[in-house]
Design a protein around this nucleic acid. Structure first.
Lengths: 185, 185
DNA sequence: CTTGCTCTGTACCAATCGTTCAAGTATATT
DNA sequence: AATATACTTGAACGATTGGTACAGAGCAAG
């Protein structure tokens, strides 16, 4: 029978939203207890390392999701264009037309980056490399594939920034569709 | 004769760096006093509204700089391509190949955005409109000019995010030169 | 020197920060 | 049922937060 109590893995998405909405510094323990519904004691039971461990676990969780849903298909799917199309659908759904922040990108812009430097770097490194791989298999020569991949991943982050700044979901979709055109053969 | 004492306008760049490096929440008054060299008393003399007024003044200062150095030339320079070229040079210098964060973009990604919503929105709105204006005068039809402008301004923000995430100034320059190609006739 | 004003450092405030912990309740094992 | 382990609670800790109060430093004008 399913456990009624909370498991560590159940808390991660709630933690993620808390960090997304308030940032690492802004997500105080009171905010976190409120958004997760867990008391301080429970949180420190699951994450003895405190806030830093919570954020690290969230980053790991996010990275694992992207690896499974996006990066791995980009690298190994035989139909490269299909994997790229799937990426675009996942990106729009995941970031909710720019209403939802990319936690890794947000960390990268603050001094929180230093604390989680390797996770932040790895996330984008893998995304760019996986996309370049798919673009290569899809017919672009290697150098061009690398350039497009960097351009596209950067553009996604910028689209999120602008859409949030201007509260304009349409802006997000327009920028994304411009980028998407760069990934079609 | 030049005043030896500090003026409000002298503090703004120092304040800007403090907010850039630590974010709005992370820039505590102890951090701010350290980075500006001013005691609490002086800071509250210049900015009676406290931290919120400091950040607002910094945003206003940044906006004014961009308006004068970049937006206005984009709108009124008779040689549109020259104004666009000048924009690219200013962008590379100002953001120091992605080593320096865009404060407005960083605010946009945190919940600090809500506090300074109109300033954050106005900054990007004006940048996009001014760039679209220049692209139009340079020969692109209106709709295409708008699309390119959004794409380019988003791309700049993304380039900063990625360059910081990966600590890779080369990445910034590569993405920028890709974007720059989109603004050439 | 006196007066008046701008500027500055120190001490202090209540509030909140992240973290700890002893005591408790629930669940699993025997 | 008895015991052990997993989880939860909420109060309390010292440190730090943003903000205030205020006396004095520095300087200019009279």
């Amino acid at each position: 029978m399913a456990r009624l109590v909370m498991e560590r893995s159940d808390v991660l998405p709630l933690l993620g939203e808390a960090f997304r909405e308030h940032g690492y510094e802004g997500a105080s323990l009171s905010v976190i207890t409120k958004q997760t519904g867990l008391g301080r004691g429970s949180l420190y039971h699951f994450f003895p390392g405190g806030k830093a461990e919570m954020a690290a676990a969230v980053l790991e969780n996010i990275e694992a999701w992207f690896e499974r849903e996006i990066f791995a298909p980009l690298r190994s799917e035989t139909d490269a264009q299909a994997a790229i199309d799937a990426m675009w659908e996942a990106v729009s759904a995941y970031f909710q037309s720019g209403q939802r922040v990319c936690l890794v990108g947000a960390f990268a812009l603050s001094d929180t980056r230093d604390r989680f430097a390797s996770a932040v770097n790895a996330y984008f490194e893998r995304w760019i490399e996986a996309l370049a791989d798919a673009l290569g298999r899809q017919g672009h020569d290697g150098e061009r594939a690398d350039a497009i991949a960097e351009q596209v991943v950067a553009g996604i982050q910028g689209a999120i920034t602008l859409a949030r700044a201007r509260r304009d979901a349409g802006l997000f979709e327009r920028v994304i569709s411009g980028l998407r055109a760069m990934t079609e053969k």
